[in-house]
């Protein structure tokens, strides 16, 4: 027996087990309910969506709401924009985090710990604090209302550097020394010696970054003002809501939401081990 159950084991273990199981089922049902409702609603007819009390299961599930999504917003374009934002941002974060993480883990230099502390402090900063001047800065650079403006400010972040430093610190120095003796450059060492040794951490960071930047809303909304052609799917969802206010659009909105949820959810289901492992290591060692 593991210790997690200690709280629940009463004088009568069998009754306690039943209670635990019941609790697990109840929590799982409540947690899953909103997502199940979302999918069910996307399959209803507009009339079913408007009924009071609500209809739980569509009589004849139909995909017309999904077709309508494609008519109201350029769903294909939105998905492509989301994909472009999430993948390029993730790639940038991986490169910058690997390099900086390597330097912080394996180099000795003056001011290293201070510099690291300053970087880490930015991890605790909500984006709204810098939103106003950042918007102006990006306008100065000519990136306003463009995907470049969405992507470039996010190509490096403290969490990535922190995670990479934690894992690269565990790579044996002998491995790096051997590569140096062979005459490998430091850049080559980072990408062909160190990186292969920390693949699980890279996978975790990639997944986190991809999901975060697929989902993120505040910055794209601010920087893409007036350029709805470049909207990622999360911004296009907002347009679905305002397209036809009222109960009539419930199926439409739920179909759009279902589509937007799919990529991060599918990634998670297949790769959840990496997510969980990285939370464990970043949370506990931090």
């Amino acid at each position: 027996m593991r210790d997690g159950s200690t709280l629940f084991r009463g004088p009568n273990p069998r009754a306690a087990d039943g209670l635990i199981l019941l609790l697990i089922i109840a929590i799982a049902v409540i947690a899953a309910f909103p997502l199940v409702w979302m999918v069910l609603s996307s399959l209803k007819t507009p009339a079913e969506s408007m009924q009071t009390p609500p209809v739980w299961f569509p009589a004849t599930p139909n995909l017309s709401a999904y077709r309508e999504v494609a008519e109201v917003i350029d769903a294909q374009r939105s998905f492509w924009n989301s994909f472009l934002i999430a993948t390029t941002t993730t790639a940038g974060i991986l490169v910058t985090s690997l390099m900086a993480g390597y330097a912080f883990a394996k180099y000795q230099f003056r001011g290293r710990d201070t510099l690291f502390a300053v970087m880490i402090a930015t991890m605790f900063l909500p984006p709204i604090v810098t939103l106003i001047p950042l918007y102006r800065l990006v306008t100065y650079m000519g990136f306003n209302a463009s995907l470049i403006g969405v992507i470039v400010p996010n190509l490096a972040n403290a969490f990535g550097i922190f995670l990479m430093r934690q894992f690269i610190a565990g790579v044996p120095d002998e491995l790096i020394d051997a590569a140096r003796v062979d005459g490998a450059s430091e850049l080559r060492i980072v990408f062909s010696v160190v990186a292969p040794a920390v693949v699980p951490a890279i996978a975790a960071l990639a997944l986190f970054a991809f999901v975060y930047h697929w989902n993120t809303y505040l910055w794209p909304l601010t920087v893409l003002q007036g350029n709805s052609a470049d909207y990622p799917i999360v911004l296009s969802l907002g347009r679905l809501l305002s397209y036809n206010r009222g109960a009539m659009n419930t199926g439409l909105v739920m179909a759009g939401a279902t589509l937007a949820v799919l990529p991060p959810l599918v990634l998670f289901v297949f790769l959840q081990r990496f997510f969980v492992d990285s939370i464990v290591s970043s949370g506990v060692k931090g």
Binding site: L35, M38, N215, Y217, V234, G256, A257, V261, P264, L265
Partner: peptide, 13 residues
Amino acid sequence: STYMVPMIAVALV
């Protein structure tokens, strides 16, 4: 898995 869902979709649902 609910943590993976974009906040915008959470809000809509």
